[in-house]
C-alpha cells in the first residue's frame, strides 16, 4: 500500500483544469519528486494534497484514509506537513516561536491550561520546546533561535520553514520548491538534509523542484506533469530519456527555432 495514493485527481477553476486526472502513489520511506514545466499544475496539485484547494474529482488516500474533504489543519494533524514555494514564515516572530507553532497540533492545552498551568501543561510546554530545539538543531539553525524570522538571511529562512514543517512530526513531508533562491552550497546541503530526513527521521519526502540536478540526485522516483496531466514516471534515468518529457521541456523539433 502506498503512503499517499492519488487517484484520478481533477481540480477545476472555471474553465481551467490545473490538475487533470492525475494518479500516482508515494511509497513509504522513499524520496520522490514531482517535476514539470512552469504552470504545469505542480503547486496546484500540492495545494490539493494539503487541503488548501478542494479537488472536484478523484480521491487522495493518506495511509488508506481519504483526505479529500479535510481541512488543511486536519491533514497536518494526520501527518502530512508542507512548506511553501514563496516563504511563508511568521515574519515577526522569533525562530523559536515559528518552530514551536509546528507542535501546535501535537499538543492540547486550552484556556484552562494556559491560565492555571497545571503540571500536564507544564510538561507539554517542556516537550514542545524540546522538539523545537531538536528540529532547529537538525536543520542547523539552533544558534539563531531567538532571532526574528524576517531578519534572517534567505537561506536560513528556508531552513526555518523546513524545521517548522518537521516540528509537526509528519510522516510525509511535502516540499514546494525547497531549493528556490538557494546558492550551490546551500543546495548541496539541502540534498544531504533531505536524505537525512528520510534516513534519520524516517519521514517520507515528496518534493516539487525546478532544479533538475537536485531532483536527479535525491529522488528515487520522479513524476512528470504537464498541462495538469501526468506524462511520465520512473527513475531519474527513465524520465530523462522519456521523449514526452523532453518534448514538454524543450518543445517539439519544429518549435525549437524560436
Amino acid at each position: 500500500m502506498f503512503l499517499l495514493d492519488i487517484k484520478d485527481l481533477t481540480l477545476r477553476f472555471g474553465g481551467i483544469v490545473p490538475v487533470n486526472k492525475v494518479s500516482f502513489g508515494i511509497e513509504e520511506g522513499s524520496i520522490e519528486s514531482l517535476i514539470g514545466p512552469n504552470g504545469a499544475g505542480k503547486t496546484s496539485l500540492f495545494n490539493c494534497l494539503t487541503g488548501f484547494y478542494k479537488a472536484q474529482e478523484g480521491d487522495i488516500l493518506f495511509q488508506g484514509q481519504s483526505v479529500m474533504k479535510l481541512k488543511p489543519h486536519k491533514i497536518t494533524e494526520l501527518g502530512m506537513a508542507r512548506t511553501f514555494q514563496n516563504l511563508r514564515l511568521f515574519k515577526n516572530l522569533t525562530v523559536m516561536e515559528n518552530i514551536m507553532s509546528g507542535m501546535h497540533c501535537r499538543a492540547s492545552a486550552g484556556l484552562a491550561g494556559a491560565v492555571f498551568r497545571p503540571p500536564s501543561q507544564r510538561a507539554e510546554e517542556k516537550r514542545i520546546k524540546e522538539v523545537a530545539i531538536e528540529c532547529m538543531d537538525f536543520v542547523g539553525i539552533l544558534d539563531k533561535k531567538n532571532m526574528i524570522a524576517k531578519n534572517l538571511p534567505y537561506g536560513d529562512q528556508r531552513r526555518v520553514e523546513w524545521a517548522r514543517a518537521l516540528a509537526t512530526q509528519p510522516k510525509l513531508l511535502l516540499l514546494d520548491e525547497p531549493a528556490a533562491g538557494l546558492n550551490y552550497d546551500e543546495k548541496m546541503q539541502l540534498v544531504e538534509l533531505i536524505k537525512r530526513i528520510r534516513d534519520e527521521l524516517k519521514i517520507t519526502v515528496f518534493l516539487i523542484e525546478h532544479d533538475m540536478g537536485l531532483v536527479m540526485k535525491v529522488s528515487e522516483k520522479i513524476f512528470v506533469i504537464d498541462y495538469g496531466m501526468k506524462i511520465a514516471e520512473g527513475t531519474a534515468q527513465e524520465v530523462q530519456n522519456n521523449p514526452r518529457v523532453i518534448e514538454a521541456y524543450l518543445g517539439k523539433e519544429e518549435d525549437k527555432a524560436v
Binding site: 503547486t43 484547494y53 514563496n86 514546494d176
Partner: peptide, 8 residues
C-alpha cells in the same frame, strides 16, 4: 463575485 483563489 467569483471564488477567490490565492496563490500559495
Amino acid at each position: 463575485g467569483k471564488k477567490e483563489s490565492e496563490r500559495m
